[in-house]
């Protein structure tokens, strides 16, 4: 659709024709906040065009891990990441500028965070940063993105209205459209439904299932039912470690590790 300098380096282009079925590959990832170690030796391979859920009790490091994938943790003073995180064969920490990385790894946050601008300007924000100024082109991107986020029909008549006037569920879908407008490879969802009502949550879940056809979706959720409903793969985090990772069904029906069994069964009583 528009010029897209994939991760900026030749390695990425080389891997393009024979895209492996892996998106992220994490090897021995350790993360420290000052002297506190928040992630301990995480090894994880995330598959393309699947929904991967990260579950675990609060404070277990699942959100922290999610934020290492698009280097949002770079913003935290005193935060240090060790190990290797590869995206499409490119080291996300050594060979990629974080700003370029974030265009390819979109993120949706726990609280819907539309900018205090119009709906149109929210979606066009990312493309404009890339230097796209032609109105026809922007119009097309906005429409495509809003359609992908399944909210075009609701919003098409009020594109110039402030995004802050939307309901929470609409705001969250707008934020998804905003993330899709920069044409990412991966979409990270950080407890994206926890601030929403059940109906809006169902909308977002349906949307995620639709989106995985085109994107790789990685979601953090505290709601195990949700992981069970829509995730293909599930990783269980506990105290900064990744305890177990496998097909969702296996994690919930036949967990191998003692801590996973306790967590999964405890919550289903």
């Amino acid at each position: 659709m528009y010029n897209d300098s994939v991760l900026g380096v030749a390695a990425a282009e080389a891997s393009m024709p024979i895209r492996s079925n892996l998106s992220f590959t994490c090897n021995h990832v350790n993360l420290y906040y000052g002297s506190f170690q928040a992630l301990k030796d995480i090894n994880l391979k995330i598959e393309r065009n699947k929904i991967t859920a990260l579950i675990g009790p609060s404070g277990c490091g699942k959100s922290t891990f999610l934020r290492t994938l698009n280097r949002m943790n770079d913003l935290v003073p005193g935060c240090r990441v060790e190990g290797e995180i590869m995206l499409d064969g490119v080291d996300a920490y050594k060979d990629v500028d974080p700003i370029v990385l974030r265009r390819h790894v979109g993120m949706v946050f726990q609280q819907p965070n539309p900018f205090p601008k119009s709906i149109y300007d929210n979606v066009a924000y990312g493309p404009r940063l890339k230097g796209i100024t032609k109105k026809a082109e922007l119009d097309e991107i906005v429409e495509t993105s809003l359609r992908q986020a399944a909210i075009w029909d609701e919003l098409k008549d009020r594109l110039k209205k402030s995004a802050l006037g939307l309901s929470g569920g609409q705001q969250q879908r707008l934020c998804i459209a905003r993330a899709l407008a920069v044409n990412p490879e991966v979409l990270l969802m950080d407890e994206a439904t926890s601030a929403l009502d059940p109906i809006s949550t169902a909308h977002i879940e349906d949307l995620a299932l639709e989106l995985k056809k085109k994107y790789t979706v990685i979601m953090v959720t505290h709601n195990m039912q949700q992981a069970k409903r829509i995730a293909d793969r599930t990783a269980f985090f506990y105290l900064g470690e990744m305890v177990e990772y496998g097909d969702t069904q296996q994690i919930f029906d036949n967990p191998q590790k003692e801590r996973t069994i306790r967590y999964v069964s405890g919550n289903f009583g």
């Binding site: 990385l101 946050f109 900018f115 924000y125 940063l129 890339k130 993330a179 920069v182």
Partner: peptide, 25 residues
Amino acid sequence: PLGWKHGSLALGATHWETIWHVMLP
């Protein structure tokens, strides 16, 4: 709200672009 800043950065904006296009307006 911190969400505006993070939202913009997560879209691949630089810190200054975030300031200029989101925070200052």
